[in-house]
Amino acid sequence: VVSQCEHCRQEKLLHEKLRFSGVEKSFCSEGCVLLYKQDF
Rank of each mutant, 00 (worst) to 15 (best):
R19Q: 11
L18V: 15
E30F: 04
C5W: 00
E16W: 07
F40R: 14
F40P: 14
L13R: 05
V1G: 10
F20P: 11
G31N: 13
Q4S: 14
D39A: 11
K25C: 05
K37G: 04
S26E: 04
L35W: 03
Q38L: 14
R9A: 03
K37P: 01
C8V: 01
R19V: 13
R19E: 14
Q38E: 10
E30L: 09
H15K: 09
C8E: 00
S21W: 04
C8P: 12
L18A: 11
C5V: 02
E6G: 11
L35K: 13
H15F: 11
R19W: 13
F20A: 09
C5I: 04
S21P: 04
F40V: 13
V2G: 06
K12G: 09
F20K: 08
V33K: 13
K12V: 04
F27R: 03
Y36N: 15
E11Q: 10
V23Q: 03
Q10Y: 06
E30C: 11
K12H: 01
H15Q: 03
L35N: 12
E24H: 05
E16Y: 10
K17M: 15
V1I: 12
V33M: 14
G31H: 09
G31S: 14
Q4A: 15
K37W: 01
S21E: 13
C5H: 02
C28Y: 01
K17P: 01
H15N: 10
Y36D: 07
F27V: 03
F20D: 03
F40G: 10
E24W: 07
K37V: 07
S29L: 02
L34R: 14
K12R: 05
E16P: 06
V1Y: 12
S3P: 03
K25H: 13
Q38T: 07
R19N: 15
H7A: 07
E16G: 04
E11G: 04
S29Y: 02
H7V: 11
L34T: 11
E16F: 14
E30Q: 12
Q4R: 15
V1C: 09
H7P: 01
E16A: 09
G31D: 13
Y36V: 05
C5D: 02
Y36F: 15
V2R: 08
H7C: 13
S29M: 02
Q10W: 02
V23N: 13
L18K: 01
L35G: 13
V23R: 06
S3K: 07
K12S: 05
L34K: 15
R19G: 06
S21V: 04
L35C: 14
C5S: 00
L34V: 07
K25M: 13
Y36M: 03
E16S: 06
E24L: 02
C5K: 02
C28Q: 03
C32N: 00
C8G: 01
L35M: 12
S21R: 08
H15I: 12
S3V: 13
